[in-house]
């Protein structure tokens, strides 16, 4: 739900302000790759209606955001292309190599799923780099990134709960480790987010 909220915040910003200033297209494209490689079981593995609908929402909204940033006449103009310089392959290749080395089963679907877990953990990095270069971070962008970081932190709590409360729940070391790293990457952002919130000031990251 926090993940869904983050997407709603981002779409709200882009749609109402007709601007994607401070939003990293690189991070959005990495997320698109995360969802495509993770949800390859969309039609073969039915978990629940909720699960299927959320997968479709995550996939379609991410491609919608990318379309807005690349294709919409007004939104495209507000994109900070010169600042958003992080290279995709810098993250994609190491994650692919890691997925080929550390996975639970050597099948195409499993390796791609593991890749998506690793890539998700670091997909925020281009956004954080852009954020640091952005002078005026608007509230919606700040809250968007906060929610995007919070959902994995909440997963950590959920994993602990499931581990102790669910009889047939098995240890998932790949997901847990990647989730911990993903949350840790946000630690610095969370610190400045709460600091600015407490002081009632505009969010600003130190250079």
């Amino acid at each position: 739900m926090t993940h869904l909220a983050s997407i709603c915040l981002l779409l709200l910003k882009i749609h109402t302000m007709k601007s994607c200033a401070g939003v990293s297209l690189k991070t959005q494209e990495l997320y698109a790759l995360v969802f495509v490689t993770r949800y390859l079981d969309l039609f073969s593995n039915f978990v629940s209606m909720y699960n299927t609908i959320m997968k479709i929402i995550f996939l379609s909204s991410t491609f919608g955001i990318i379309w807005y940033m690349r294709g919409h006449k007004l939104v495209r103009q507000s994109y900070d292309k010169e600042q958003d310089t992080f290279r995709h392959y810098f993250l994609v290749i190491p994650c692919m190599v890691l997925a080929l080395v550390i996975h639970s089963k050597f099948t195409l679907l499993e390796v791609l799923w593991t890749f998506s877990i690793y890539l998700e953990a670091v997909a925020i990095l281009p956004q954080l780099v852009l954020l640091q270069r952005t002078r005026n971070i608007d509230n919606l962008t700040g809250n968007y990134i906060f929610c995007l970081g919070a959902y994995r932190a909440l997963y950590l709590l959920n994993w602990i709960y499931r581990y102790f409360m669910e009889k047939n729940y098995h240890a998932q070391w790949i997901t847990w480790m990647a989730g911990m790293i993903q949350t840790a990457i946000y630690a610095d952002f969370f610190y400045y987010y709460f600091k600015s919130w407490k002081k009632n000031e505009r969010l600003k990251l130190p250079a």
Binding site: N45, S48, S104, N168, Y169, I174
Partner: peptide, 10 residues
């Protein structure tokens, strides 16, 4: 039971 390949999370 739930194994790594029976994924129920998003």
């Amino acid at each position: 039971h739930l194994t790594e390949s029976e994924k129920d999370e998003l």
